[in-house]
């Protein structure tokens, strides 16, 4: 079990890029932290989500 933006998911040992794609996130408008550590964009492809990880995907919308 992993937590992605507060919701439980079954993506254990899944690749972060694949999960973001499946959940319809746009890579250009997000920041991702795993267990409160930023995941550099350049490493999304090689990052694996482990059991118990707390993933926070901040998805920005326009306006300011």
């Amino acid at each position: 079990m992993v937590f992605i933006s507060g919701k439980e998911h079954e993506y254990v040992n899944a690749n972060l890029s694949d999960v973001l794609k499946e959940l319809n996130y746009n890579k250009d408008t997000i920041a991702v932290e795993i267990n409160e550590e930023i995941v550099p964009k350049a490493t999304y492809d090689e990052t694996v989500i482990k059991d118990g990880d707390v993933v926070e995907v901040v998805s920005f919308v326009g306006g300011g």
């Binding site: 250009d28 408008t29 920041a31 932290e33 964009k41 901040v58 326009g62």
Partner: peptide, 24 residues
Amino acid sequence: AESKAMLVNTILEKAPDRYILSSS
């Protein structure tokens, strides 16, 4: 949105000693 994400990612990745406050 792209600019917001760019700045937040840049500060968190490369200047973790600074606070970053953002709005969305």
